[in-house]
Structures are given as structure tokens and as C-alpha cells.
Simulated assay, not measured.
Amino acid sequence: MESKFLFLINLLVLQYLAVLCVSQDFDFFYFVQQWPGSYCDSGKSSCCYPTTGKPAADFGIHGLWPNYNDGSYPQNCDPNNPFDESKISDLISNMRRNWPTLACPSGSGETFWSHEWEKHGTCSESVFDQHSYFETTLGLKQQTNLLQALKTAGIKADGRTYSLGDIKDAIKEGTGYTPWIECNQDSSGNSQLYQVYLCLDNSGSSLIECPVFPKGKKCGSEIEFPVF
């Protein structure tokens, strides 16, 4: 009887430690937004407008990604919690506006959102369920309002070239935090503003200065901001 009791106690301790490890299994989030004009004017990726029509000329959400301070990240953490559109039915119209898909073939967004939840969102289950994951991310887009921050600094999506430093300064002025800018190349090989990374604390409640920046392709000192 005593050995059975000890076994149960050990089992409970292990379960507690497992929950504790899950709840602390990432250090911060990357909140990533992309400029559709750069996605579509790239020699490397195909661009198809959603079945609901061409998105607005605004930054669209790419995702909210748990990350470690060493630059690595968890992924595909819970295959038993697949994307379920019925859980976010009240957010769909907002997501189609602010989290549009540009992948080919054309879709309504569900495949994109499913990928983001299953690869990244399931690794944040200690903080978010599906609804709060998407709702929080939509709120971050409104809070940061990148396009307005750039417009305020006189930086517009007009196909002209701008200083990378001016773009970073404008976003920091508008959001309060230092961004990391990812560039891609247009069909002529010119560097262009593609994605903007900001960071969120691991409680999912506050923007923070990024503990580490991605190791992706860096931009030149002058980059294009293409029309969309």
C-alpha cells in the first residue's frame, strides 16, 4: 500500500513538473507583420489574392511566434489541438482584413491560419487558447499601426527608396520599441521592405524590446517601399 502511495505521489510530482516546463517553455514572442507589395513583387514567391478579393494596402499579420532567447523556437507542440475555425467564428471578418493570405492557389485564409496555430500557437497553450491567440494578435496589429507610423515620418509605399535607419526610427517612434526589419528582393534584384518584427513578453500581455533579433537576411542601408 505504501509503495502504491509513493508511486502516486511521484506521478503527481512529475505531472506538475511537466506542466511547469510547458508553461515556461519559451521566453518571448515575435509579432511579425508583412508588406503585401513586397510579398507580391518578389521573384521567389507566387502571389495570389484571397478569394475574398485584393487585401488593403496595409501591413498584414504573418504570425505570433514563441521564441527562445538563444534564437531557436519550439514548433508543432500539440498535434491533439488542431485549428478549429468554429472557435474563432466571431473573428473571421477581422482576420480576413488584417491577416490575409497571399499564397497560391487563392484561399480564404483558413489554411494560413491553421498553419500558424498548429506550428506556433500550440506552443503557447500555457498563455493562449485558440481564440485568445488570434484575438491578441489582431489587437497587436491595431496597437502598433505600422503604416501610420511610417506615414507620420513621411515614408510612403510609393516605390521610392528610403533609409533603413529612417524606417526603423519611424517605427520605434510610433510603437515605442525597436523593430527588426527583414528585406526581400523584387523581380529586378532590389532590396525592399518585407517584414517587421516586434516582440511581446512571454505572458502575452506587453510589447518589449526584443531579447534577440532573427538571423534572417539583412537589409541594405537603402531599401524600397513598393506600391501595392
Results as ranks from 00 to 15, higher is better:
Y133P: 03
G159V: 09
H120R: 09
L164G: 06
G154F: 01
G165I: 09
S163P: 00
L150D: 12
L147V: 09
F134K: 08
G139Y: 04
G165T: 11
L147R: 14
D129H: 04
Q143Y: 04
A153G: 02
Y133W: 08
H120F: 04
H120E: 09
S132K: 10
G154K: 01
Y162L: 11
H120V: 10
A153H: 01
S163V: 03
D166T: 11
K151H: 15
C123F: 08
D166W: 03
K141T: 12
L164K: 13
N145G: 00
R160H: 10
C123S: 10
F134D: 02
G121L: 07
E125W: 09
A157M: 06
C123E: 13
A157I: 00
L164Y: 12
K156S: 09
G139K: 08
E125S: 15
V127N: 08
A153K: 05
G121Q: 14
L150F: 04
Y162A: 11
T137D: 07
L150E: 02
F134R: 05
K119R: 15
A153R: 06
V127T: 14
H120N: 14
G165R: 10
S163A: 09
T152W: 04
E135Q: 08
E118D: 14
S163Y: 03
K151F: 07
L140T: 07
L146T: 02
T161D: 12
T161V: 15
N145C: 01
S132W: 03
G139C: 11
Q143V: 04
G139M: 08
N145R: 01
F128C: 04
H131A: 03
F134A: 03
E125F: 05
A153W: 05
V127W: 10
H131P: 02
R160K: 14
Q148A: 01
A149V: 03
Y133R: 03
S163H: 00
D166I: 02
S126P: 11
L146K: 06
F128R: 09
K119L: 13
I155N: 01
